[in-house]
Amino acid sequence: MIVGTGPSRAGRRPETTFSARTLAFIRMQPPLHPVLTCRFCGQVHRAIPLAGGEVARCVRCAAHIASASRWGGKHAPASFALAGIAFAVPAALLPFITVEKFGNMRTGDFLAGVFALDQHGMPLLAVWVLICGGLTPLLLLTGLALGWRNPASLRWMGGAFGDWAMPDVYVLAVFVALTRLGSIVDVELNAGFWSYTAMSFALLLAWRTHRLQSNASA
């Protein structure tokens, strides 16, 4: 099946008429020289070295395709990722907040929320929250910490799981919950939450520095 441009336009723009099969074939061929492909419009650019703080934009769609971090350093993603893994341990074990009501103390942490969903008959949602808030960030951190030797598999991992890591959203949710609870009960933030927030930031930085580098070197 021909998709793309119809036969009527074939004469006008022969070079844009592809069948999916042709494309699959073309895509299998490795590029002969380093190129920078825009992930939004597919425009191919010559890869040029970027100085620190420079941003490369697509010539066609103006999307941000590469930039060189001021932090630089080939090992920046891995070091950020290791920091994130270090924070992930207390984030998983320590309470996020302590709530007091009627002389009763309760601590809440990430896993307590997951178990509460399960207890109220929503096991799937519990698993989903665990995946988005805990497992995927950890997976990405591990990959970033170990995978700088193998950029291709790292890129695949980012494409497959990057959308599902949402620790930053979870941090915002805890802040909203905190403000909501604060008017009713006595709330205190604990180390677990700060560790989780730090983990979230470390993932953000590791991912960002990695994406910049992998784009720049693709």
Binding site: F110, G113, V114, H120, G133, V169, L181
Partner: peptide
């Protein structure tokens, strides 16, 4: 996903 996390967290705490 904010609301989902919010409900999950509150259910775990309260």
């Amino acid at each position: 996903m904010l609301d989902v996390f919010l409900v999950a967290f509150l259910a775990g705490v309260v």
